[in-house]
Amino acid sequence: MADDGRRIEDIALSREQVLRAVVLEAHSKRELTEVVESSRSTVDRAIRELLDVGLVTQRDGRYEATLAGECALEAVEAFHERMQQVSSARGVLGCLPPDTPLDSAFLDGADVYTTMPEMPDGVIQRLFESIEGACHLRGVAPAVLSGHLKPFYDAAKASDADVEMVLDSDVLDQLIAAPSTRDIFLSQLTDDRITISRGNVPFSFGLWITETEVGVVVYTDTGIRGVIVNDTDTAYSWAERRFEELSADASEITMDGIELDE
């Protein structure tokens, strides 16, 4: 059965032009050579293969797609779309380890924003735009770039959003220890609308969730490589599962639990 499925897949991909033509309209072989702009021998082979796997049928000297053929063409088009999405995201995804728990379905319908050399921090503005329009923001941070901490806080305050963040323990300790970020972090911690929890973030990408979209931030050793944004139900389900799993094991941070060096 698996071999049959692979054969249908191979034929549907290799004979896509002819299959698409007969899905749109029944044709004779002579008409097909004109429609797909190919030789009669090539069309003959294509029709023979499509007939053999049940994707095309013959009626009164004309060839038309079966229901299986129509479904096969839809599958081929979905495959092309998925591959285009992978191609668009490959520069960003290439910065993540192979075992990264990023569901490939997250790419379906996603927009990918890649850092440009002339504007190395430009893509992070896409995150701030998402935050500025939010009433409720949830996020996960395995890393924090100090230069983005205040703009993040300002964007959240501007929208008066309720914020729930899970920070990796090492990142949280660094924010508290560094004079350049300590005051900003403590300001966030004393804000009634912001909840910050300490946890073990087992992946290297950042994650945010608002009412309208979810996004992933991909880091490099020197900054941000890009962001991927999606608003589909599938993307939401995946992102919410990740956030809830981490939140369940995280501990909320309060001022009483912070030790500051004098």
Rank of each mutant, 00 (worst) to 15 (best):
A2S: 13
D4Y: 12
D10F: 14
I11N: 05
I11T: 12
R15N: 05
V23H: 01
A26I: 03
V35R: 14
S38C: 01
T42Y: 12
D44S: 03
E49I: 05
D52Y: 08
D52S: 15
G54M: 09
G54Q: 01
G54P: 04
V56W: 04
Q58W: 00
D60Y: 11
G61D: 00
R62T: 08
E64K: 00
E64F: 00
T66F: 06
T66V: 12
L67K: 11
L67V: 13
G69Q: 05
L73N: 05
L73D: 04
F79M: 14
E81N: 11
Q84W: 02
Q85P: 02
Q85F: 03
S88Y: 09
R90A: 10
V92D: 05
C95V: 15
L96T: 07
P97A: 08
P97K: 05
P97T: 00
P98L: 05
D99A: 14
T100M: 11
P101H: 03
D103F: 04
A105E: 09
F106T: 08
A110F: 03
V112W: 02
T114F: 02
T114V: 15
T114D: 01
T115H: 02
M116P: 00
D121P: 04
G122W: 09
G122S: 10
Q125K: 08
Q125G: 13
Q125S: 12
R126A: 08
L127F: 06
A134N: 06
C135V: 14
R138E: 14
G139V: 10
V140N: 11
V144E: 15
P151C: 10
F152H: 15
A155W: 03
S159R: 08
S159K: 12
S159Q: 04
E164G: 10
D173N: 14
L175T: 08
P179I: 07
I184W: 03
L186H: 02
S187A: 07
S187L: 09
Q188P: 00
L189I: 01
T190D: 13
T190N: 06
D192A: 14
R198K: 13
N200T: 13
P202A: 07
S204A: 09
S204D: 07
L207D: 07
W208A: 09
E211V: 01
V216I: 15
T222C: 12
G223S: 05
I224C: 03
I224S: 02
I224R: 04
G226Q: 03
D233F: 04
D233V: 06
A250K: 08
E252V: 14
T254K: 07
I258N: 12
L260I: 15
E262Y: 06
